[in-house]
Write a protein that binds this DNA or RNA. Structure first.
Length: 768
DNA sequence: GTAGGGTTAG
């Protein structure tokens, strides 16, 4: 609407100008209006005073310019001599008028009053001034700009490069991309310089017009291009390609790598920051090949590469566990004299630690700051590097050494341990079950003024929970809360999990409520934990309730949660409920996995419905899932329960021959237990041999089943042999073992024989 | 650079 309105106004103006246009041209005026600053004489001190006077007259006599002789005199000097002031002045005056409305009115005034009409190109700078005014005008600069553009076209006034750039940018920012493109295309080709192309590139890329952008870029990148790209072009292009919310089509890594090479041929390279970000982005998208190529292109084309970019690639390669290429890159850094920094070493040490190669990590650590040895430069470790190592040590149970490193960082590098340092050590001691040491460290950090954070809290709470000290954990948590350290979802997960595991479901539910009341919003893991805990405890109604709450909160149940619920319903013999879950799963697009099938196979076979169990197994295979050792275990167990040992043994044999799923200890235990109960101890013993043969380790359950069977037959010799074997294999007897053997051996007066077993156990217990 | 959970056969 604005445009139409503007157009009608414009055409009337056009008529006006044309009707009053004299037929001859006054060279003096022409010169006044000239766009070429070089043709205009340098501004004298007079200029500004005249301009000020003109502007003042224009501003103060808003409605009566036509009757203002003074104004006319200043603008159009009667003596007809070339007035140097004028040419440069018109844009200046226009700028100072402040609004486009006034400026346009002034423009009309000039058109009407000029003794001779200006050549259209000479008005270009004045329009430039008006565009500048327009784009500052609110609320709608765009309609003003469009109106001006329309007017300038009507008058055949060409755009200056500045006007065009401004228009391209403003239209682009408003999302009027086609209008931006049009302005550019209609611009005199000699003016289509690198700068405006950069602005257009930015506009196109930001709006997702990737192909248009690449097309223009392609033209710029031609070897003989008149306006080749510059440093800004490369930054604009790659910053845009890095944008996360990039609309339009995505640019493949091949294209990105290709662009870098082409820029490289113009001796242009992305900045260190840009290159590093590109590499990071590619690596995160799983395109480390592209990242590798990118970095190497820049190196080979002679662009400068710094450690940061290499670090980005090293991180990506590390994520993919591509140690070989990590090593190659490190070698190349050395060859190209790219000095590794503390982060480079941090990446290396971190990866070594994550793969439990702590000794190698320590070696690298020693070398990096060892001076001379590492090619004349040495890198001082910082707190992060120390923390990485301390964590690595703590994770493999070498927390005492970690403690030593903390002392070293203080004394050798005057590097103060921080919260993370303490957290890593506290975690190490917690994992080792040394909760007291962890507490000591916690007190120490408080004394030193190192503030504990929620991770400190969670590490201690989790450690106590894992070691069965739930009450201490609760106490500690409450204590911390009083001191102002609030827990988060992780804290509650640890506690809820611990209460579920210790059969205190009500307390777990209570904590969940407490968490909500404390304003701590539960995440998916808290829900999963609770659903699992409730299902396993047989509280399926509660579990379903939590699941519905979870869905209300916008989370989805995953396959494991569905399996937990289905398993729970099956155990409760609520098959219809299990089916409901299966249906829901399907609707949610969650595919059943091997565990789902195993759960159902177990349910059917345990209820004696072997036909259906086998049918489900068939379906499992048809759906591309291979039966697992658990599948066979479920069937074998169920056949054993109904004393169909033949069928159980048939499946067992079938496992190693046709199915190639090697039986494990559990499978042997089921069979050995059943055989012993059926007084078939010989076959059970032969299965023991079979285990030895196949390298399957018997465990306490295996021995217990055997002892029970042997006791029934009173085969003492065999039992004593197995007792020795148990000690040899460092297999712990449990209370069932002791019960069977104590009863049996005391009855036959052989209690002495129990000694070895008990002693062996004590050795093991002390080691643990 | 540091913290949390869960499924199926004995």
């Amino acid at each position: 609407m604005n445009v139409t309105h503007a157009a009608s106004k414009q055409s009337s103006l056009l008529r006006l100008v044309k009707s009053e246009a004299p037929t001859t041209c006054h060279t003096a005026i022409l010169r006044h209006f000239s766009a070429e600053p070089n043709l205009a004489p340098p501004p004298s001190t007079d200029d500004s005073s005249v301009i000020t006077e003109v502007v003042s007259l224009l501003q103060n006599n808003d409605n009566d310019w036509n009757n203002n002789d003074k104004l006319r005199q200043l603008l159009f000097p009667s003596n007809n001599s070339p007035h140097s002031l004028y040419a440069v002045s018109l844009p200046k005056i226009t700028r100072r008028l402040g609004t486009t409305t006034k400026a346009l009115k002034f423009f009309e005034y000039i058109q009407a009053n000029s003794p001779s009409p200006p050549e259209p190109p000479s008005l270009s700078p004045t329009f430039e001034a008006m565009y500048e005014l327009a784009c500052r005008e609110q609320p709608n600069p765009l309609s003003k700009l469009s109106e001006l553009l329309y007017k300038s076209k009507d008058h055949n006034i060409p755009l200056t490069i500045n006007s065009a750039t401004l228009l391209v940018r403003c239209f682009g920012q408003a999302g009027m991309i086609d209008k931006s493109l049009l302005v550019y295309k209609e611009l005199d080709p000699v003016l289509q310089n690198t700068h405006i192309r950069n602005v257009l590139l930015d506009v196109l890329l930001r709006s997702g017009r990737v192909d248009d952008a690449l097309q223009m870029l392609d033209e710029m990148l031609k070897p003989d291009a008149e306006f080749p790209p510059n440093e800004n072009s490369i930054d604009i292009v790659f910053t845009a390609l890095l944008k996360r919310d990039q609309s339009g089509r995505s640019v493949s890594e091949e294209e990105i790598v290709g662009l870098v090479s082409k820029f490289g041929e113009h001796d242009l390279f992305p900045s260190v920051v840009c290159l590093t970000q590109l590499i990071t982005k590619l690596c995160r998208r799983g395109k480390s090949n592209g990242a590798w190529e990118l970095l190497h292109d820049v190196i080979n084309l002679g662009g400068g590469v710094e450690a940061a970019s290499c670090n980005a690639l090293l991180t990506g390669l590390g994520r993919e566990r591509d140690f070989q290429r990590m090593n190659t890159l490190l070698k190349e850094m050395k060859e190209k004299d790219i000095h590794p920094n503390v982060i480079t070493f941090g990446i290396l040490i971190n990866h070594l630690c994550k793969f439990h190669r702590v000794d190698e990590a320590l070696e690298v650590f020693e070398k990096m700051s060892g001076g001379g040895e590492s090619d004349g430069f040495s890198v001082e470790p910082d707190v992060i590097l120390y923390n990485t190592l301390i964590d690595g040590l703590s994770k493999v149970g070498r927390q005492e050494e970690g403690l030593g490193l903390m002392e070293q960082m203080r004394s050798k590098h005057h590097c103060a341990p921080n919260t993370v340092t303490y957290n890593c050590l506290i975690d190490g001691f917690c994992k080792a079950g040394e909760i007291e040491r962890s507490h000591e460290l916690f007190n120490q950090m408080n004394r030193e003024g190192v503030p504990p954070n929620v991770i400190t809290l969670n590490t201690l709470v989790g450690g106590m929970c894992r070691h069965g000290r739930i009450n201490s954990a609760m106490e500690f948590f409450n204590d911390m809360q009083r001191k102002g350290l609030k827990g988060n979802a992780v804290t509650y997960t640890a506690l809820i999990n611990a209460f579920c595991n210790s059969n205190n479901i009500n307390k777990a539910m209570e904590l969940f409520d407490e968490m909500m009341k404390a304003g701590c919003s539960p995440d998916a893991i808290v829900y999963y934990t609770l659903i699992s805990g409730l299902s396993l405890a047989g509280r399926l109604d509660d579990a379903s309730f939590v699941a519905s709450k979870m869905k209300e909160a916008g989370f989805c149940l995953d396959i494991v949660s569905y399996n937990v619920l289905i398993g729970g319903f099956c155990r409760k013999n609520k098959f219809d409920k299990a089916c409901e879950m299966l249906k829901e799963m399907e609707q949610a697009g969650v595919n059943p996995d091997a565990v789902t099938y195993n759960t159902l196979i177990s349910y059917f076979s345990n209820s004696g419905n072997f036909t259906t169990a086998h049918r489900v197994m068939r379906q499992m295979i048809d759906n591309g899932l291979m039966p697992t050792v658990v599948t066979y275990g479920a069937l074998i167990h169920a056949y054993c329960l109904v004393d169909n040992l033949d069928e159980a043994m048939k499946i067992f044999r079938d496992m190693s021959t046709t199915s190639r799923v090697p039986p494990n200890t559990v499978i042997y235990n089921i069979l050995i237990d059943t055989l012993c109960k059926n007084k078939n101890v010989e076959v059970a013993l032969s299965l023991m041999d079979d285990m030895k043969h196949k390298g399957v380790r018997p465990n306490t359950t295996t021995y217990n089943a055997m002892f029970k069977g042997l006791q029934g037959k009173n085969w003492l010799e065999k039992a004593l042999k197995l007792m020795d074997q148990m000690t040899e294999q460092a297999c712990n007897p449990d209370y069932i073992t002791m019960e069977i053997l104590t009863e049996w051996l005391s009855a036959v007066g052989e209690t002495e024989k129990l000694k070895n077993l008990v002693q062996g156990y004590e050795v093991l217990a002390s080691k643990a």
